[in-house]
């Protein structure tokens, strides 16, 4: 009897296309690209703001360009997905034990949703959207 274990190789570049679960996770990771680009967009806005009303006006003007519009439309659902997928696992990273038992995860996740929706509505209200 001789041992000759067989090792199955996987593709290091396309493995996540084989399984829906892995593909969803990859998309989840890639949403961070849009969060990052949006951070740079905010940085650009702050730079314009620091340079005065004219530069800031040019920034707002630039936002209406087709590239900006396309970015926003792609980014919006993806950053929403980032938020949802992030909140949905918060109870795993931060379980809360009350007395003997652990608080059911849905309460921890739910609290995040409540704060998220409340905060978003406040921002929209203060921003003068409605």
């Amino acid at each position: 009897m001789s041992r000759r274990p067989y090792v199955r190789r996987i593709s290091t570049t396309t493995w996540y296309l084989k399984k829906k679960r892995d593909l969803v996770h990859m998309i989840q990771e890639l949403t961070s690209l849009f969060v990052g680009i949006y951070g740079i967009l905010l940085l650009w806005g702050v730079k314009a703001l620091s340079e005065g009303p004219e530069a800031y006006g040019a920034f707002l003007e630039a936002l209406t360009g087709p590239l900006s519009l396309a970015f926003h439309w792609v980014a919006f659902p993806l950053v929403l997905y980032h938020a949802i997928s992030w909140f949905n696992v918060t109870h795993k990273a931060m379980p809360i034990q009350r007395g003997e038992e652990f608080l059911p995860g849905k309460y921890i996740v739910g609290a995040h949703y409540v704060v998220w929706i409340g905060f978003s509505l406040v921002v929209l209200f203060v921003a003068g959207v409605f």
Partner: peptide, 26 residues
């Protein structure tokens, strides 16, 4: 660990390894 959560989804004993690992990271 990249917190894909796959371990916890397939665990037949509901051990939730992903939760353990995230707590360990913290």
């Amino acid at each position: 660990c990249a917190f894909a959560d796959a371990c916890s989804l397939v665990c037949p004993k509901h051990v939730d390894p992903a939760s353990a690992l995230q707590q360990m990271k913290i």
